[in-house]
Amino acid sequence: MPDLVKIEKLRVEYRSRESQNGFKVAVDGLDLTVGSGEVFGFLGPNGAGKTTTMNVLLGFVSPSSGSASLFGVDVREPIARQRIGYLPELTYYYKFLSAEELLRFYGKIFRIPKGELEKRIDSILKLVELEHARKRLIKTYSKGMQQRAGIAQALINNPDLLILDEPTSGLDPIGRMKVREIIQRLKEEGKTVFFSSHELGEVETVCDRVAILYQGKLQVEGRVDDLVKNYKTNLEQIFLKVIGYQSSQAV
């Protein structure tokens, strides 16, 4: 299985006035690989460095040291973008466009032929259940609808690798199930999905492998079934244990 995502000794520092040495380490010596066709869950508490890692993968943040590559190409080269779908966290799309126009715009950047693009837009909007609102301006959408529009734009180029930053945030239970189904289906099509999430239950059901990040450092990494076997408990308890949280009941 070739590695689609390969992260080696990645270290990212942000400039910060609060800390005494003038910078803050967001990711510290991270090693990670995601194989082709895998669904990979990227876990960690708030501020662990998940988004920062994804930003490095997409070239928005340059690493202080270490390297990262997609499809075997260093992330600093923009070549690999043609085959990626990316869903950022907390994104608002162009408020003065409708979902349909948004997808058409992104489709143009991928140079998808017109007829095919229209077909794909129809099917994707159906998939994320935005068909009824496809001609409405995005500024009239609810938070969950905007999130769905985000998922739709990540799928527009039929990508081989999906990088999703908290795809289920803000969605209702049906929406979450839907996202789970989408991920499952992509997996069946042989796509690779690398996503971060705080929903451990859903991660457990869809992921082949997970990594748990804490304060920028990788704590645990492995196949979900192996982890569950080794720790003899569910993913949630493993997570809590790894980040050193003692529930009051346990004490």
């Binding site: 997409l58 070239g59 928005f60 923009p78 973008r81 043609q82 990626i84 990316y86 869903l87 950022p88 907390l90 994104t91 608002y92 799309y93 162009y94 408020k95 992104y106 950047i109 991928f110 985000g150 734009q153 990540a154 180029n157 990088i163």
Partner: peptide, 13 residues
């Protein structure tokens, strides 16, 4: 609005 992130994640420099 962070629209620049999905945009630059596309093949667009």
């Amino acid at each position: 609005n962070r629209t620049i992130f999905p945009l630059l994640a596309k093949p667009l420099t």
